[in-house]
């Protein structure tokens, strides 16, 4: 069954998109900004893992486990040292800064690593799959989906159960009043950024195991992540998961008929949602 298989592959792909998207969703929810370098950061993570892997004899899983927290620290620092400044200079500045960052990252990677495509060598893990009937679900794909769901559950728990999460929601509602109860917006934004960097690093590494990558792939990942957020509905993490899955499934199903149209079909789904259901599949709770 081609269609059933395509559906299953689409869900796995969509899981990866959701993993790309959840950080974008969090940052937009808290700071109302989109980091245009989001996709490029995933590629940076992939190259970091690639370099570490070739320079050391560490196993891939360990490299990944180290890269992710390192990225969250880098995310916190990027926010505090670079983006916070631009947040204060008005709404244009953050876009310009993150767009500049995106161009810098892409071209730096190009100079350092050339335009050659690479893959992260994950040995048998990359090639083995779970066979369910006629459908074969790759372990890498399953990992992506599980990480997406896991990340979203973790972020939700963080937001609803911890005091930092509570203050993050308060800051998202009303930063001035949040300051009156002691919230330091810079710290809150730093944490949101750390979450985004950590999840996008995971996504980048999973993507790099799944398929080959090169320095130019960042923007496409940003667009898919963005589409997942909008399709799902702004301000809802579960919506983002659903949006990612919908995007993956549509791309995958269309690819059965015409592989060259699959990305276009995803974009069209996004435009359809924009035209007919601008609040997204799962609208955020009305306040």
């Amino acid at each position: 069954m081609d269609v059933v298989n395509a559906l299953a592959q689409g869900l796995l792909l969509g899981g990866l998109y959701a993993l790309f998207a959840c950080g974008l969703s969090v940052v937009f929810g808290v700071m109302r900004i989109v980091n245009l370098a989001h996709g490029d950061l995933a590629i940076v993570a992939a190259f970091c893992a690639f370099v570490t892997l070739s320079a050391t004899s560490l196993p891939l899983w360990l490299v990944a486990v180290v890269t992710v927290p390192v990225f969250s620290v880098v995310g916190y620092l990027t926010q505090r040292l670079l983006l916070q400044r631009s947040l204060q200079s008005g709404p244009l500045a953050t876009l310009l800064v993150t767009f500049g960052l995106s161009v810098v990252i892409q071209n730096l990677l190009l100079e350092l690593f050339s335009a050659d495509t690479r893959t992260l060598d994950a040995g048998s893990f990359a090639t083995s799959a779970l066979e369910v009937g006629d459908v074969s679900l790759s372990y890498v794909g399953i990992t992506g989906l599980v990480l997406a769901v896991g990340s979203i559950v973790a972020i939700q728990l963080f937001l609803s159960r911890t005091s930092s999460g509570r203050i993050m929601r308060a800051t998202s509602d009303d930063p001035q009043t949040a300051a009156l109860v002691g919230a330091d917006a810079r710290r809150v934004y730093g944490i949101a950024s750390a979450i985004a960097f950590a999840t996008v690093a995971m996504a980048g590494i999973v993507m790099a195991i799944r398929s080959s990558f090169d320095p130019s792939l960042g923007p496409a990942q940003l667009l898919f992540a963005f589409e997942a957020v909008v399709i799902g509905g702004l301000g809802s993490l579960w919506g983002t998961l659903l949006g990612g899955l919908a995007l993956g499934v549509v791309q995958s199903l269309v690819a059965v008929a015409d592989p060259s149209s699959s990305v276009l079909a995803g974009h069209l789904l996004f435009l359809l949602v924009l035209a007919f259901r601008p609040q997204g599949l799962v609208p955020a709770r009305a306040s």
Binding site: G90, F99, S102
Partner: peptide, 19 residues
């Protein structure tokens, strides 16, 4: 590509320091 790296850095600097 260094040209674009430089340009990106200049744009970031201008956007934050010389809006």
């Amino acid at each position: 590509s260094w040209y674009l790296v430089l340009l990106g850095c200049v744009a970031i600097l201008v956007a934050t320091r010389l809006p």
